[in-house]
Nucleic acid binder design. Structure first.
Lengths: 337, 337
DNA sequence: TTGTAGGCGTTATCAG
DNA sequence: CTGATAACGCCTACAA
């Protein structure tokens, strides 16, 4: 390993001078020396040792991407196409700015704090649902934290979110406007304070506004995989009055469409479906899915924007961005009027 | 930050002793002291500083996951559902074994080496296509390297791959057995020495074996997104003799199915399609896609197995695992016989 | 413009 | 059993 001292010896100067050149403190070093040192750095292939740097400067240039508390065994947190899209965007932008990305799932607050301290992370991205209690342990750490899709309003954290409520409200309203009156709601397990709850509330709100009584019996909660979707379909066909379904995730909508078709139901003739997310999949299913669009790449980029500002020590004017959604009409909704 | 010295002072022993306890060198410390120290560690919330540890031990417990050389702008390397699935599996297993995962895309060998040295990584996962030249710069680094889906046979690296050739051969053969004679091949851009090339060769081989002449004109290469697939469909319909299509990725197969349907073609009645990968999507499209199955989670886990063995300094009996594939018959292939 | 000294937190060596 | 000491590579005063 080539160290700063090797460069110093090779060029006949002190380590300090080399360090100064590396950090661009050009006013303290003669142009000639700078030249010489830079050449030696190239020549010998010097690369700064981040561990050493991190140790002395208590900044590591490492940013963590931490994923929700794992509940089930076997949860592969990358399976969600969203996380992956966001992470990709985040890695790219972070890299351009000289930061490094560490990926981590944690099961509890303790693990998280440990993780942070081990590497004295410079910042943290969070996604998924956390209890408020979870965040309390973070509050004392004063390190930049950017949340993705969080509804835990802990002060001091930035958040890039989505109009989940409105999106889902619009999805439901769309069905209502097309003449539907019996509209179910399907979703992965709805947890308190999460994205899905907002979407659920949006659905209920649209119903209420239209004077349609909410029925608990037509809210279906299951995992997102295909077999779970098939289970939901068993329930759905027990409700022949249903003409429409709001689904809080496209993947699930696709699964339900498949399940329904297997049972001989036609979409949208027998049941209309509106999804959420507008992942590429929604254009690939048959019929193409009417859904609520969101821009995940943008979400990732904005999250990094926040992070970079936070890291640079700026005080922010806003700490909360809520991206808007829009309905994308395709062919999975039938006009009943 | 609580340091080892804080613990030492709190318990009235030396830093060395604390260090010994932390590393389980119990034979060198009295049971009583151990007890005391462990309590203090809990009490004060001591967490080892990895930077310091890494600095002195020249091992960081950081494993890098490096993605292919980026060619296009805008390439979001997480968009491929495979990478994400593999990464998830890798992170989980690595974590269980006390390692940390850093994600990184690099554009050239220099960047890679720099990245490695900055953190003196303990190991490296690679995915995507690299030129041999790329690896040469790694060879001198003697750090454990595990490749995913590589066909660059540089000695000293482990690789977890797939029977790409055979899988694609079987896909093609399946169509032939069902009576198809005019079979096209669609794929993302086929690069030399990559997975896709193998799949392409498998296709050609099956053709040759059946005495079907290979036709360059019915090999379609495009990006994987829907619009590119639509472009392919324009070409496909120019070849009315085509009854079957082997597609080297399910996502693309799904896109082509959509494009074809938009043009009024029925699947499988007008054209039969066989995909590759068996991602969940393939069960969600209509008709469900006949495809070549592979287990991506397993791939990730095996890759970590390799890595852990390498890290423990073992000499391996095998350095190459090739996972097998199998044909999953669904409904996208018509029997022409 | 350049150099010296001290220290970041940890571990290994060697002595008590 | 326990502890002092040096070293890992780098950075930041402070001196020269």
């Amino acid at each position: 390993m080539v160290t700063i001292r090797d460069i110093a010896e090779a060029t006949g100067v002190s380590a300090t001078t080399v360090s100064n050149v590396i950090h661009g403190k050009d006013n303290r070093v003669s142009a000639e020396t700078i030249q010489k040192i830079n050449e030696a750095i190239k020549e010998l292939g010097y690369v700064p040792n981040m561990s050493a740097r991190s140790l002395v400067s208590s900044s590591s240039r490492v940013i963590g991407f931490v994923n929700h508390v794992i509940t089930r065994e076997n949860t592969n947190f990358m399976e969600d196409p969203f996380h992956s899209a966001a992470i990709g965007a985040i890695e790219a932008t972070l890299r351009e700015n000289g930061y490094f990305l560490m990926l981590r799932t944690v099961e509890n607050a303790e693990e998280l704090v440990t993780f942070l301290q081990r590497w004295n992370m410079d910042g943290l991205f969070f996604t998924g649902i956390f209890k408020d209690k979870f965040f309390d342990s973070l509050a004392g750490l004063h390190i930049p934290v950017v949340l993705l899709d969080s509804y835990v309003h802990t002060s001091g954290f930035c958040n890039v979110g989505l109009e989940d409520f409105t999106g889902s409200y619009n999805a439901t309203k769309h069905l209502i406007e097309k003449g539907h009156r019996h509209i179910g709601f399907a979703s992965p397990n709805i947890k308190d304070g999460g994205v899905l709850q907002e979407r659920f509330l949006g659905y209920k709100s649209a119903l209420a506004e239209a004077g349609i009584p909410f029925e608990k019996g037509i809210v279906f909660q299951q995992e997102m995989d295909l077999n779970s979707c098939r289970l939901i379909c068993n329930d759905i066909v027990e409700h022949p009055e249903l003409t429409g379904l709001v689904v809080s995730a496209d993947i699930m909508a696709a699964g339900i469409m498949t399940g329904l078709k297997e049972k001989g139901k036609r979409i949208p003739d027998d049941i209309s479906i509106v999804g959420f997310d507008d992942i590429s999949l929604s254009q690939l299913v048959d019929p193409p899915l009417t859904t609520i669009h969101q821009d995940m790449n943008l979400k990732g980029r904005l999250a990094v924007d926040f992070m970079l500002q936070l890291l640079s020590g700026k005080t922010l004017d806003t700490t909360e961005i809520t991206l808007s959604t829009r309905l994308v009409e395709r062919s999975s909704v039938k006009d009943l009027r």
